[in-house]
Amino acid sequence: MMPAEVVVLIAGVIYKRCTLNDRGTKLRKAILSTCICFGTLPIAEVKADAEVGDVELGAYLSAECVTCHQTNAETDGIPQIVGLDPNAFVDAMLAYKTKQREHPIMQMMAGRLNDEEIAALAAYFNALE
């Protein structure tokens, strides 16, 4: 049987390629599901890379976001973040975290997220339809 770490490594490469080629969400989700089934995503080693963020961690963390950000409606106030480009997401969060962008709630929420968590959220919201 293939060691789990190898599976994760291969899946990660395929996943990133799919993302780069924008081949569609279904395949990405299938690969992520495979990773999740193995339960072996190497959390501590995930880099702050919005395209390979830990989607399962992102899903958990996102629960904090959706208390204010609606996921199924267009609003002209608190912005829609579902489907947001992951790099734009990361940039925005880092701007809040470093207080270059104004908003007391977002500065507070982003302020306690580390790079891995921001990448995870970016990947999750990008994958969400």
Binding site: V66, C68, A73
Partner: peptide, 17 residues
């Protein structure tokens, strides 16, 4: 005013949640 409008957005989001 923005803060109030934000609270209306929050209300819609949390009740949806």
């Amino acid at each position: 005013k923005t803060t109030y409008e934000e609270s209306e957005n929050w209300y819609a989001a949390i009740t949806g949640d």
